[in-house]
């Protein structure tokens, strides 16, 4: 680059300048995007009365009061709600990993009658709006007296109803060479052994994507959790957060932001740890 002839130099500068301008623009835009989040972080550490008096990010006075107050300001401690969320989320992740990978193995590798039809149905169910099934589901779960239990939230996952992940894994398994299955078969492995010893270990990236997405979606879920969990003891973090908006809560912004921040922390953590899988997963399902 440095040895380029004279007339080219201005062009090089121009290019460098425009590249710098582009970075400035991208950084500026990123900051605008993140500003609400950063502001929430700073608001959580500000004394109540300063939150809206200072739109800036750097608090002139730092306090942890919002956290201690918010933690105990609902009927149960916020830790209780976080624990409920964690239980439901962990079981959902396990359920999706097991049930969806089993279905995906069958769709990707085995031959059976009406396979095309079943596969089409599976794809169709991805697009199906949840609301078409929710009324009868609620009625059945209510008759079973499962309201305020975790069953309505996790049972569907054990039955592989998150078909999106089946699709994701089918796409992934299809890229694995069939010779591996064949080699296993020649060595005398049956279908279960092939599934456990060949497919599952090679599917780790797809399983990671599934696990992380299930985690984030279940942790964020409000509609179903709000529907099925109504007793204070059973609430999850996202349903409990909503209670800050009720009645007296409306004025206590500091504690509300503090608890919001805590409830977002696991998602942020998983995002940092697993963004490779998230982005890859998005890209593969989006493209094929």
């Amino acid at each position: 680059m440095a040895t380029q002839s004279n007339p080219r130099v201005p062009l090089l500068y121009r290019r460098r300048f425009s590249r710098g301008a582009k970075h400035l623009m991208l950084i500026g835009f990123g900051l605008v995007m993140l500003y609400p989040l950063l502001w929430m972080v700073s608001a959580a550490f500000k004394p109540e009365e300063l939150i809206f008096r200072e739109p800036g990010l750097w608090p002139s006075e730092v306090t942890l009061e919002n956290f201690t107050e918010g933690w105990y300001s609902l009927k149960n401690s916020f830790g209780h709600y976080l624990w409920n969320s964690a239980v439901i989320t962990a079981l959902s992740v396990i359920a999706n990993l097991v049930a969806c990978s089993m279905a995906a193995y069958a769709f990707a590798r085995l031959d059976f009658p009406f396979k095309k039809l079943w596969f089409a149905l599976m794809l169709g169910s991805i697009m199906l709006p949840h609301h078409v099934t929710v009324v009868p589901q609620y009625i059945v779960f209510a008759k079973l007296e499962w309201i305020n239990t975790i069953w309505p939230l996790i049972l569907p996952k054990f039955l592989a109803t998150d078909a999106f992940f089946i699709f994701l894994m089918v796409q992934f398994i299809r890229t694995l060479p069939r010779e591996l299955d064949e080699a296993a078969a020649i060595d005398g492995a049956g279908y279960w052994r092939t599934y456990f010893r060949v497919i599952i270990p090679l599917c780790m990236p797809a399983l990671a994507t599934t696990g992380i997405f299930t985690f984030i979606w279940t942790w964020n879920d409000f509609f179903s959790q709000n529907l099925y969990l109504t007793k204070s003891d059973t609430l999850t973090a996202s349903v409990a957060l909503r209670q800050f908006l009720d009645g007296s809560g409306e004025s206590s912004w500091g504690p509300m932001f503090a608890m919001s921040l805590i409830s977002l922390a696991p998602i942020f953590g998983f995002f940092l740890a697993g963004q490779k899988y998230l982005i890859r997963g998005m890209a593969t399902t989006g493209l094929k």
Partner: peptide, 20 residues
């Protein structure tokens, strides 16, 4: 092979009928 496939798909079939 078909038998095995239907076993692997059993949870999904159950979900398809009962949940969907």
């Amino acid at each position: 092979e078909a038998g095995a496939a239907y076993v692997f798909l059993a949870p999904w079939f159950l979900g398809l009928i009962a949940i969907t």
